[in-house]
Design a protein around this nucleic acid. Structure first.
Lengths: 151, 151
DNA sequence: GCTGAAAACGAATATTATTCGGGAGGGAAA
DNA sequence: TTTCCCTCCCGAATAATATTCGTTTTCAGC
């Protein structure tokens, strides 16, 4: 279980990840070793999934962010698994969710150009897709990975 | 501009962020100081937006991931800005995009319970929203922040 | 209050980042 | 071709930081 200090640590880690262990320990009013042990425990117990660097999409030439809603014509578990493995392996697919609503899946995809987007959609169509509805992101208003721990 | 080594560094940083600078330098066949200087430059020039810890939603009690499509009845720039500032400030809103398609915005939101989701939707409805369509994520097939640099 | 387990502390050590001086490589001008 | 200059690299030295360790404190259960 998590106490208040654990939650404080998690919250600092997800917003100010680059804090040194020493600074972190000062923020939560604990010694450096105690703080360090807690962080290790939180990693160990799976509260922290991963650490990552968020790169700038625009600067790296990825101008085209899309959402794709799709349904599939296949229904057998094995084929579904196969389809999902395919989707997961596609590097353009950043997120893939199985959803309620009129489509089976929603994808968030990223592309360098319309040309690449078109190639991607063509690739999707070869995977047993029955319906496809693609929308393009015009502007990013907010993009965060931060869970609202302090609410 | 970026050379091959820069791209290699960025790719390692977004997948194996916890590599020490020494290990990183060995992976890209450069000395530690040279690698370090490159990373600093990449941060400085904005190729790296941020570093973050990805927390485990489920373990922290956030079972409900949703997509919300919404349109607004307001059209004046100032009011739109106001609306977007509101949306950005809501901690449940993890992502917010202005989109093509039949709705103005798409949100990705996260909640602890149906109760909280309901409260959130009620809050949204007080912001000048004309249409709202909420779907719930049944299963996460893939969730990544990694750009396909090596493609 | 007493006891034992869990967790914290400070000091010592090990790792790692960071700085620095110097040198190699490569393009431009004579 | 030679010289100059700029950029970028390297290894060694230093500074900062993480990590380990033995001891002390804290606190729940009796």
């Amino acid at each position: 279980m998590l106490d208040d200090v654990d939650v404080h640590i998690l919250d600092l880690l997800q917003t100010e990840t680059r804090l040194s262990n020493l600074e972190l320990s000062q923020r939560v009013n604990l010694s450096a070793p105690a703080t360090h042990a807690r962080v290790k425990r939180l990693e160990q117990e799976g509260y922290i999934d991963s650490y990552t660097a968020i790169l700038n999409q625009e600067k790296l030439g990825y101008d085209l962010l899309c959402t794709v809603f799709m349904s599939t014509s296949i229904h057998q578990t094995q084929e579904i698994n196969e389809l999902e493995r395919h989707l997961s392996a596609m590097p353009e697919v950043m997120e893939c969710y199985c959803m309620t609503g009129s489509f089976d899946y929603m994808l968030k995809t990223i592309h360098r150009s319309r040309k690449e987007l078109e190639a991607f959609i063509r690739e999707l169509n070869q995977l047993g897709v029955s319906q496809l509805q693609t929308s393009i992101v015009l502007r990013e208003v907010k993009s965060s990975t931060v869970l609202p721990l302090r609410k």
